[in-house]
Amino acid sequence: MDNPEVSKTSTHILIMNNDTPVGFFALEEGEKVYKYSNNPMARVLTSFSIDSGSQGKGLAKRGLKLLPSFVKEVLPNINEVVLGVNKRNIAAINLYLKTGFVDKNQVYDGPKGPQHILHLNI
């Protein structure tokens, strides 16, 4: 992975459906966390995507519902996952809210416009 937007110390995760990779996300640490949370035990979920051929099958929802148990197992010192989602992306906001994220009415002015900051307690 050579994406300058993703920190070198992030944890990169493939989302699998049986033996087929269908998606990806990163859990980032460091300075980026403090744009969204003052919790030093938080990580930022970034780059969440599902392959276009696998969309509409509930894989994003299933993957996000597994996130708390995955974090507990792989990153046991982390107690919160935060993310920023564009205020115009209603479908993504609804997906995150359905999978346990909470909107605490915080907004971050990102490079692509205002972002809802959503929190998931682990």
Rank of each mutant, 00 (worst) to 15 (best):
E5Y: 13
P76F: 01
G56K: 10
Y36T: 00
P4C: 09
D19C: 05
P76Y: 02
I122V: 15
L95N: 12
N77A: 14
F70P: 09
K72W: 04
G58I: 13
G113S: 02
I15E: 05
G30E: 03
N105Q: 07
D2V: 01
V6N: 01
V82S: 08
N3C: 07
M16Q: 09
N86V: 15
M41K: 12
T46K: 15
S52W: 00
L67V: 11
I117S: 01
Y108G: 07
L14T: 13
N38M: 04
F70G: 05
K32D: 04
G63M: 12
G53V: 15
E29F: 12
F70L: 10
P21L: 03
K87Y: 00
D51I: 04
Y36E: 03
K8A: 08
L120G: 09
M41T: 13
A92E: 10
P40Y: 01
K61L: 09
S37D: 10
A92K: 14
K32F: 03
D19M: 12
M41Q: 09
D19L: 10
V22F: 09
H116Q: 08
G84K: 13
R43G: 09
S7D: 14
N39R: 00
K35A: 13
A42G: 04
D51Y: 08
S47L: 06
N94C: 03
R88G: 01
G56M: 10
P40R: 07
M41V: 12
N39D: 00
I78F: 11
D2G: 02
R43I: 12
P111S: 12
S54N: 09
R62W: 07
K32A: 03
L59Q: 05
S52C: 03
H116Y: 14
T99M: 06
M1L: 03
P4K: 08
D2F: 03
P4L: 09
S54G: 02
P4G: 03
V85A: 03
K57G: 02
S54T: 05
V74F: 06
T9D: 15
P21A: 08
A92I: 13
L27I: 13
N17F: 15
L83T: 12
T9R: 00
N17W: 14
E80M: 08
Q106M: 06
N89F: 11
V6T: 03
I13W: 07
D2K: 01
L45I: 15
P114C: 06
S47K: 11
P21Q: 07
L120D: 06
V74K: 14
L66K: 13
E31R: 00
F48S: 04
E73R: 02
G84M: 11
K112N: 14
G30P: 02
V6S: 00
V44K: 02
P111Y: 07
H119Y: 15
A60S: 11
Q55R: 06
L75E: 13
T11N: 05
K104P: 04
M41A: 13
N94E: 10
S7R: 06
L66F: 05
E5M: 14
G23Q: 08
F70H: 06
P114W: 08
D51C: 05
K35W: 12
